[in-house]
Every structure is written in structure tokens, then in C-alpha cells.
Design a protein around this nucleic acid. Structure first.
Lengths: 155, 155
DNA sequence: CTTCCATGCGCATCGGCGTTCCCAAGGAAA
DNA sequence: TTTCCTTGGGAACGCCGATGCGCATGGAAG
């Protein structure tokens, strides 16, 4: 992990489908060296995969909900049951157990408010062990540093 | 946007660097037809780009913080100033204005608690108009449906 | 200081992939 | 029915990516 690797990761994070030759030029390396480094980064787990950035809005999903959920108990078994149930729900794209009150934070995508209401009623409301559910809706997303920029220093 | 397009998007979301020929086989199309559809999806904004999934932990970033921030005012100018300042902070990878108390929710990556403390002191604490800052730390991430699965129906 | 070894780059090659033509088939409108 | 438009398949061409080889560099040992 040197400066060149960081540059490669930035480049891959910005455009994962860019030709290796392009990336190589950007970071000042030959194709072959760049290819080998990329393979090494994949093998070492620094790169875990590649994905497409989807246009939610364009796909008809206009609601992003950030949901806080608290459980009645903090027994590991109950947490596990809750997590297993959450993992089955369509629309839940992120879920994390967080400090500070032992609750969960989810990110949920939905087509519209009706769709979210349905999700809330049919799935969230039936999760085991839940005491409170608190939904916030994203009114506006602020562009931030990209993941790679955040990790390797700005801009 | 038919079933085939959805399948292509799922495939691209799962592995953006997969050869088109592989994707074509998966969705039951020829290479040429598949390429055309991918290009169309990119042009229409359904696909906005491709990125690498980075292994934060492996890269030395062990802290994921979810931060709630409330401002003193809701005047649009103040919001804009806040957002402009937030966008400059390294480590902030997501930021959204949400309903319910007119506050912001950020996701922040840091190397460790010391690093986060520094970030908090040097940057978060100096954001304009802030009244309260509430940090939660991710103790455990629960695997959920992928974005594509959430959008096009699970499995 | 010299020698050896390991690491990592660049070059060239070759196999495979992606893009782009062209043509055919199916459906809608006139 | 005819025409047009859309969309898929096939083949060719050019380009890309993976691998092997030779070489340079740097550090350690003698």
C-alpha cells in the first residue's frame, strides 16, 4: 500500500469499468504493472468487488428513509433474530447495530410514501423485539467526498 | 426498462467488471444486444457510473460513525453554508438533510477513535450554525439485500 | 566494497473481449 | 398489405488484458 496503490484505488472507485491502460496512465505505470497491482489489491481484500451506481430516482425510487429502531432486550439471541428478519426485507439496503442506546439504524429505499407505508406496516412493524421505530426521510442529499477521497485524503 | 434490463442492472451491481459476454449469458442475450442495452442504461441515467467496493477495515479505517447534527436556524442560506463546509471535510462520505427536526445525518469514516476525535474537534465542532452533534458508532454491520435486489425485488 | 537475491517495472505476445457494422424478425400504424 | 421502427443475432475488426521474460534497483550478507 503505497501512493500508487492509493491512486489506483481512487481511480477504480471513480470508474471501475475504465480500461486498465487508462488507469495505468493516470497513475504513471505500465499496463502490466498496473494489472498486477490491481490483482494484488483484489487478493488482499483492499478491493472487495465492483458495483454499479444506480440512479434510484430514475428507477422510480424517490424515497430514502433513515430508520432508527430500538429493541426491548439486548440479549444476543434477540439481536440475531432481529437481524435475520431484517435481512429478508426488500428495500433495506443498510443495517447497522450502533452504540448509544443499543439500537439499529437502517437505510431503506421505497418508490413513494405509499410504498414506504406498506413496507413499514408489513415488515418493519412485524420485526421481532422492536420497541420503537423512528423514520426520517431524506429531503436532500449533499454531495460529499467520495469514499476513496475520504480514505486517502481529499480532493 | 423491462425484465432483462433489471437483470442487467442486477448483474452490473453485483460485479461491474464482469465481461459483457458473461452478463449476456446470464440474462439470455447476445453480446451485441447486451452491450447496446448497457449503453442505453448508461445514457438514460439508470446507471450513473461504476465504483469499487473498498475494504475499509483492511485499509485501516475501523470506525464508521453515524452523526446527527441539528442547526440553530432553518434559513436556506445557513443550510447552504453548512453544506458547503461539510463537503470539504475528509472522512464524511454521506450527508443528508432529513425530515423530523430539520437536522442532518452524516456517515463518517475514521481510522480509530483518536482519529475521529480529531475530526470531531477540528471539523465537526467548527461547522457553522451547529447546535447539537450526536455521534453513534457502528458496532456491527448487518448484511442486507443489495441495492439492486432492493430495487428490483429480492431473492 | 562487492556480490547476491528479491522485488517490481516495462516490453512484447497472444488469446479473448468489446464494439460496430449489417441483416432479419416481429409488431404497430397507415 | 405495406411500410416503418424497434430490437436481437452474427461476424469482423480492433483493442484490451493477462502472462512470461529480461532488466534495473535496493537491501542484506559476506
Amino acid at each position: 500500500m503505497d501512493r500508487i496503490d492509493a491512486a489506483i484505488l481512487k481511480s477504480l472507485a471513480a470508474d471501475a469499468r475504465a480500461p486498465v491502460s487508462t488507469i495505468a496512465t493516470q497513475v504513471g505505470l505500465s499496463q502490466s504493472a498496473c494489472t498486477r497491482r490491481i490483482q494484488a489489491l483484489e487478493a488482499s481484500g483492499h478491493v472487495q468487488g465492483y458495483g454499479a451506481r444506480l440512479g434510484h430516482r430514475r428507477l422510480g425510487f424517490r424515497i430514502t428513509a433513515l430508520v432508527d429502531i430500538t429493541l426491548g432486550t439486548q440479549v444476543e439471541e434477540d439481536l440475531a433474530r432481529f437481524e435475520a428478519a431484517v435481512a429478508q426485507i426488500d428495500g433495506v439496503v443498510e443495517c447497522a447495530l450502533v452504540s448509544g442506546g443499543q439500537d439499529y439504524r437502517l437505510k431503506i429505499l421505497a418508490r413513494d410514501l405509499d410504498d414506504y407505508e406498506r413496507l413499514h406496516r408489513e415488515h418493519l412493524g412485524r420485526l421481532p423485539g422492536v420497541v420503537t421505530i423512528n423514520s426520517s426521510f431524506v429531503l436532500r442529499s449533499i454531495p460529499t467526498r467520495s469514499e476513496a477521497e475520504a480514505l486517502f485524503g481529499g480532493r
